[in-house]
């Protein structure tokens, strides 16, 4: 049998709290990601999304559980897994271009300076940062441009897995929309496997093949894996008219507003076996499309999306 590209088994994170007591942030987290998939994870603050991401990046260690990528256990950070942080994490003393070449040089130490430069330019071009802005320092760039540089750096190292930690969280709605479109385009061209944290339901629907829903912490779990049955390429303006859109959206909002808390409150199963989260396809049942949904709140979508 073929192994999934990325396999997360029984991941748990516990912190000591008080005298011989522990605080479990999350436990029994099992899920797979296939090659080329775009997976988003949504959950309330404190459910441990960022910790999961840091574990995948190799920057943090889980208390229990194993992460396997391409048949090999993840231990420590690696260029095979690129990370885009929410706060961009650009080196402020380097220009935008130098920040990208920094990544490329680390990835390909044997390349000539010219080749590194050309490769970096290719990715800066993808995010539209080649008209002089590439020679500016991050402090002279807007938040959106900084995140573009960060995305270009991550894609330029061509990792097997790209990890995005709320990359658009600090951006205004308009900029966010533009960069989401760019990300979608670059992802479709590159066939990257992407794992992304987000707080934004519409963003997740636009980008993801699958959305993992996490219940509230402590003792958070991946409660569901929601498949987004909306054909690609997706455009935010057209996607809203797809019959599945509001079913998925309502399902997600319902989960976040009530069920995530209910699951956290319900008694936990003491079951050590690997258990994939149930797959849900709220958009798949092909009954009549919700007629008034799209006319009711298009403004919300266009702004928040």
């Amino acid at each position: 049998m073929s192994q999934p590209f990325l396999q997360i088994d029984g991941l748990a994170k516990r912190f000591p709290s008080g005298k011989d007591d522990t605080l479990t942030v999350f436990e029994n987290v099992d899920f797979d990601i296939e090659k080329g998939e775009f997976v988003c994870i949504i959950g309330h603050s404190g459910c441990g999304k960022s910790t999961i991401m840091n574990v995948l990046a190799g920057l943090d260690e889980p208390t229990d559980g194993v992460v396997t990528m391409d048949g090999r256990e993840v231990s420590g950070p690696s260029l095979e897994r690129g990370v885009v942080f929410q706060n961009y994490s650009l080196l402020p003393w380097l220009t935008a271009l130098k920040n990208v070449t920094f990544g490329v040089k680390a990835r390909h130490p044997d390349w000539s300076a010219e080749r590194i430069r050309q490769h970096s330019y290719k990715f800066l071009e993808m995010v539209g940062l080649t008209n002089g802005a590439e020679h500016r320092k991050p402090s002279q760039l807007s938040g959106g441009m900084r995140q573009r540089v960060s995305i270009a750096r991550a894609f330029a190292t061509e990792p097997k897995l790209l990890l995005l930690d709320e990359p658009f969280g600090a951006l205004d709605a308009l900029t966010r929309g533009t960069i989401q479109d760019e990300l979608l385009r670059i992802w479709q061209d590159s066939g990257q496997t992407v794992f992304m944290i987000t707080h934004d339901v519409d963003e997740a629907i636009l980008l993801a093949d699958r959305i993992l829903l996490m219940s509230n912490g402590p003792f958070a779990q991946v409660a569901e894996s929601v498949v987004i049955d909306i054909p690609r390429p997706r455009k935010r303006t057209e996607m809203v008219h797809h019959p599945a859109y509001y079913k998925i959206r309502n399902h997600l909002v319902d989960f976040l507003s009530s069920r995530s808390a209910e699951i956290a409150a319900s008694p936990r199963e003491k079951d050590g076996s690997r258990r994939q989260p149930p797959t849900v396809r709220p958009g798949a049942e092909d009954d009549s499309p919700a007629p008034d949904a799209e006319s009711a709140r298009p403004h919300l979508v266009s702004l928040a999306g």
Binding site: A57, L59, L79, R81, V83, F85, S89, L91, R107, T157
Partner: peptide
């Protein structure tokens, strides 16, 4: 964050120190 950038780019201790 910057140290993490060095770590995710697999920079050795010497390169991390100088770069």
């Amino acid at each position: 964050d910057w140290v993490n950038v060095a770590r995710t780019h697999e920079l050795g201790p010497l390169k991390t120190a100088f770069q």
